[in-house]
Simulated assay, not measured.
Amino acid sequence: MSTKKKHVVFDIVGTCVSFDAYYDCIDQVLGARLRQHCITPKHFGFTWQTLAELEFTFLSISERHKPYQSVLRSMFYRSLWFAGITDPRSFATEEECERCVQGYSSLQLRPGCFESFQILRDAGFTVWCFTTGDIQRVRGYFERAGVHMPLENFISCDSTGVVKPHPASYRSVLDKLGVDDEKWFAAAHMWDVSAAVKAGFQGAYCTIYEKEPCLEMAGVDMRVIADTLPKMAQGIVGA
């Protein structure tokens, strides 16, 4: 009897969870003022999170790993500056910054996330979640939605101090799984899933967030591409 197991490792924020609540919070706190400068809350939110992700990654590479949310908080005024606000500290208070940061903690699961997990579990897959964030925070996204996800199936880059997309971060997950097991990585970030494929996973990509796969940049074979999470799960099962 075969002891080979099947695993799917999901990225969480951006894949299982959308950024809509974060953008909506920025709109509620700063939206009217941002629009006076022809800046949409969503565009500012994307600029802010992208700048924070860049800083977060560079800090990790230089062996100064910090929790992502603390980096996000630190990048607030710098992001306003790059968005075109010439006097950021007069534009928004630290209390308003904190309210927007808390909006990032209020993200919600995407439609079809629970369904995709169930499709995979029914087909014998173990579902894992791999995040650059704090496990308690990201687990809260599932708990608030009433979706069961065992604590032991969450893996955070915080535990090793090596963040995605460094190959060592994915290899640390691969090492937790059986050598001969079937191992998939599923994400809505092409940079994430393509790096996981390079490290040794089979790749499944959902276009729900980025829309354009930009496969010419990825440089790897993507086994499954779908426009919803359930379709991606079905593609993995049928591969």
Rank of each mutant, 00 (worst) to 15 (best):
E63Q: 09
A92L: 05
S90W: 08
F10V: 06
A52G: 05
T50G: 02
R35L: 10
E55C: 10
L59V: 00
L72T: 00
C97P: 07
Q108D: 07
E98A: 14
T15Q: 04
T93F: 14
V29E: 12
I85G: 02
T40Q: 11
I61C: 11
T57F: 15
F44G: 01
F44H: 02
Q49S: 09
V17W: 02
R73S: 15
R73V: 03
C25K: 11
F19T: 12
V29F: 08
S105E: 14
D24W: 07
L51T: 08
E53K: 05
R33M: 01
I85T: 05
I12D: 00
I26S: 04
E63G: 06
D27H: 07
Q28I: 14
F58D: 06
Q28P: 06
T50V: 09
G14Y: 09
L30T: 05
V13K: 00
S70D: 13
D20S: 15
T57M: 10
Q36I: 06
Q108I: 06
G84S: 11
F44S: 01
A52E: 00
E53G: 13
V101A: 09
S70P: 05
L34G: 05
C38A: 08
T47N: 13
E95K: 11
S105P: 08
D24A: 14
V101P: 03
F46M: 07
E95I: 12
L30M: 09
G45V: 00
G45F: 03
A52V: 00
L72C: 13
Q49N: 15
P41D: 01
S18I: 12
R73G: 04
P67W: 15
Y77R: 10
G84R: 05
L54H: 11
Q28A: 12
S18C: 06
S70R: 08
C97T: 09
A83I: 06
V101M: 08
W81V: 15
L80D: 14
K42C: 02
V17K: 05
F10R: 00
F10Q: 00
A52K: 03
D87W: 12
P67E: 01
E55T: 12
V17P: 01
Q36L: 13
T86Y: 13
A92R: 07
S74T: 14
D87R: 09
L54W: 13
Q36W: 07
A83W: 13
T57C: 04
T93G: 13
P67A: 02
I85S: 03
L107G: 01
L51C: 05
E95F: 06
G45L: 02
Q49A: 13
L80G: 02
Y77V: 04
K66D: 05
R33S: 06
Y77F: 11
I85Q: 09
T50Y: 02
C100N: 04
F44T: 03
Q49P: 01
W48S: 02
H43K: 15
L59S: 07
D20A: 14
C25W: 04
F56I: 02
C100M: 10
I12Q: 00
S74V: 11
T57R: 08
E63Y: 12
V101H: 07
T40S: 15
G103W: 10
F91G: 06
T40E: 10
C25F: 06
S18A: 07
G45E: 05
V9G: 03
G31L: 04
